[in-house]
Write a protein that binds this DNA or RNA. Structure first.
Lengths: 210, 210
DNA sequence: TGTTAAATTAACCAGTTGGTTAATTATTTT
DNA sequence: AAAATAATTAACCAACTGGTTAATTTAACA
């Protein structure tokens, strides 16, 4: 039973298209991206894009799906694995900064395209984070530790929002920030690495009791 | 000397166009916005857009300029007025959240359009923040207070980045966040108001010595 | 009031865009 | 090797886009 012996170029072309589409869509957004430009980037005929992925919408959907996938699959294990709230936060901060450092354009891409548009992808992300009751369980754990006097009594959604702010925003504002403060690209990367410790320091000082 | 006695509809039409353009550009971005849609929104003929503002680029430039203007003019006085670093931060946090609460789409709009593109607007923002040496002076004040043992010794750019993260991100991620956590629009507005105190609490616990 | 200038419009235009099609080439299958 | 199927392409197309133009309406002015 040969399940994956595709015809010659097939898998290769498909992968090449996705690679090109990812680059162009993330750089220019859905509206700014041109099917012809994606085809050029992938060194194929424009008709192939439709042959493999029916429409611009469908192709974009695939890219968005992947981006959400990368984010969700990085964060969810950090939430679900054992440990105290602060231990989980430490894993979230570390993993998120690591993954996003390799895909620095994803956060702004996901947020701007999601805010613009179709509830489709929003629901996708939502179900990813809610499935298995990941988030509700984490909320519950926060409240529990607050009642045990381990954590400062702050609404859980504010805590989550704070953590996300501290780790995501630096990547979202990167372009503007390095321009405004004349920071060279390279040293910004270093800043992101330093950021792990700084963020954890902030979180502990702000939310940990003792 | 009558400087501003324009012919009848003039000022009105111009204002109406800017209002419509602001709405459409912010909702759909430069690439997603259509001149025809802006004209419809303003209840005028499409040719009027070009009559008053030459081109889509020029019209967009005006909107972007205004957005940057709103942000800069809110923040700069907070930096330049007298007071300690923490007092200045308190004004920044309060003013920023107040202004952006009235224009909740501006941060994501500015960041995504700036990241996408022309260094034009980046330089605009940069010069706004750098003129009169606003930022350098604030950096200097931070370092001074750190040497006096009043503030934790953290690189000033990390401190700024942290403050901006805490106040800007909640608006940038609003759409995704309220969808993911099923928070009603209204209570998110309330959250932003609570946020002023929460952010100040975080900043003081994290950066203030004593 | 009649002349001049500004404001507004409908119709138009050339270039672009996502998408299709019919024909050609490459690859399996028998 | 021939038939069948899949991959690939060039040419094409209708809809749309930003922008223009020539004509008309409205307002200012002397």
């Amino acid at each position: 039973m040969k399940t994956e012996v595709k015809k010659a170029g097939k898998k290769d072309t498909e992968t090449e298209i996705l690679k090109a589409a990812k680059k162009i869509f993330i750089a220019k957004g859905y509206d700014g991206a041109r099917m012809q430009e994606i085809a050029n980037e992938a060194n194929i005929n424009k008709a192939m894009l439709h042959y493999y992925f029916r429409s611009k919408d469908a192709l974009f959907g695939k890219i968005m799906e992947e981006a959400v996938h990368i984010m969700a699959d990085t964060l969810i294990p950090s939430f679900t694995n054992e440990g105290s709230v602060m231990e989980k936060l430490e894993r979230i901060v570390t993993n998120y900064i690591d993954v996003v450092s390799k895909n620095p354009h994803i956060p702004l891409f996901v947020l701007s395209e999601m805010s613009r548009g179709q509830a489709l992808f929003q629901n996708q992300l939502k179900s990813k984070m809610m499935e298995n009751g990941t988030m509700p369980a984490f909320f519950h754990q926060i409240i529990e530790e607050q009642q045990q006097g381990k954590l400062v009594a702050i609404p859980p959604q504010h805590l989550i929002l704070t953590v996300m702010s501290l780790i995501a925003f630096p990547f979202i504002a990167k372009a503007v920030f390095i321009e405004m403060l004349d920071i060279p690209e390279q040293s910004y990367t270093a800043m992101m690495e330093e950021r792990k410790a700084i963020v954890m320091d902030i979180l502990k000082k702000s939310f940990l009791i003792n």
